[in-house]
């Protein structure tokens, strides 16, 4: 048996329900991707939790923690990449094919989106969280509760986004280094004699566990190379904080994708999760339910 690889269109037949051709859907492939959010979230969450448990066992047994810490961090970085890509896809809806934007995004694009969406107004636009101006054409009685729910949702998503954005630069470094087989030097290889020579010289020894992430660029014409390095914190404390943020980010991505599928399947302009609606006063909850599809 061998896995097969087929060109697009020849290998898969899609039957996606709902308004998948509508401009706000982002195209059938993007909707199809979003429909697998639950399986993706479950997989990412479990793989990270297993790695976290393995690290705690290694720490307890006083085994070398670096091997486990590295793939634990790598898995978290990969999960955050899902969120960054999804945001790029959602942002692109109405401007270009959302799935292509999502799928073709470079690491620089992902860095940029994590930075750009720290701004609440930008995040609201990207994730379809209504502002007062957006809902001015809705019935008068619906506007205040929907705006209140949207404000709660925006606050919640902004906090989640900023927490994930803060962890992305570190986890991205480890994830990409580990994925491409770049040697990552443990703290002890750099700090303890005889050390790594010129490599890592001057690196501050700030954390109890870190790896040196090294990159070399070559200027072939000048016959010159430049090697740069930076330490990446792999301490248990950092990894535990990262896990909390990343697991939250996985649920966040799951919620965003499911909200998008809900909008497409119900042809709704706005979707507010029920847990957010539950935070509203009862009269506002009732008004939203009366108007909901």
């Amino acid at each position: 048996m061998e896995p097969n690889h087929e060109p697009q269109g020849a290998g898969i037949r899609l039957t996606i329900p709902g308004a998948i051709e509508a401009p706000f859907a982002g195209g059938p492939r993007f909707v199809a991707y979003c429909m697998t959010a639950d399986a993706r979230a479950r997989h990412r969450r479990n793989s990270i939790k297993r790695a976290g448990n393995a690290l705690r066992r290694a720490d307890k047994a006083e085994r070398d923690p670096y091997p486990v810490a590295l793939f634990y961090a790598q898995r978290m970085g990969v999960a955050l990449e899902d969120l960054g890509r999804l945001a790029i896809g959602l942002e692109a809806i109405g401007q270009r094919d959302a799935f292509d934007a999502f799928r073709l995004a470079s690491l620089d694009d992902i860095d940029a989106v994590f930075d750009r969406l720290r701004n609440e107004a930008t995040l609201r636009r990207a994730f379809r969280v209504a502002t007062a101006g957006d809902i001015a054409d809705l019935p008068n009685d619906l506007q205040p509760p929907l705006l209140a729910a949207s404000d709660v949702l925006a606050g919640q998503w902004c906090r989640q986004w900023r927490s994930c954005a803060a962890g992305w630069p570190l986890l991205r470094r480890i994830a990409k280094g580990a994925r491409h087989g770049t040697p990552l030097l443990s703290r002890e290889l750099v700090v303890d004699p005889p050390g790594a020579g010129a490599l890592g010289k001057g690196t501050p020894d700030r954390f109890d566990r870190w790896v040196l992430v090294t990159t070399t660029d070559e200027d072939r014409a000048e016959r010159h190379i430049t090697t740069q390095w930076v330490e990446a914190d792999l301490s248990s404390d950092m990894l535990e904080r990262a896990e909390e943020a990343v697991l939250d980010g996985i649920e966040f991505a799951n919620g965003l994708a499911n909200a998008h599928v809900h909008r497409v399947q119900t042809s709704s302009k706005w979707a507010v999760p029920s847990n957010v609606i539950r935070t509203l006063p009862s009269d506002q909850r009732r008004t939203i339910r009366e108007h909901a599809l």
Binding site: P67, P183, L185, A196, G197
Partner: peptide, 26 residues
């Protein structure tokens, strides 16, 4: 030693003692 021998040694040690076990466990 500083620009060749020790960096090479450290990188190879990281591969053998850290990265290979890491990939194996993962």
């Amino acid at each position: 030693i500083q620009r060749n021998f020790l960096p090479t040694r450290a990188l190879l040690l990281s591969v053998r003692d850290t990265l290979c076990p890491s990939r194996e466990l993962a």
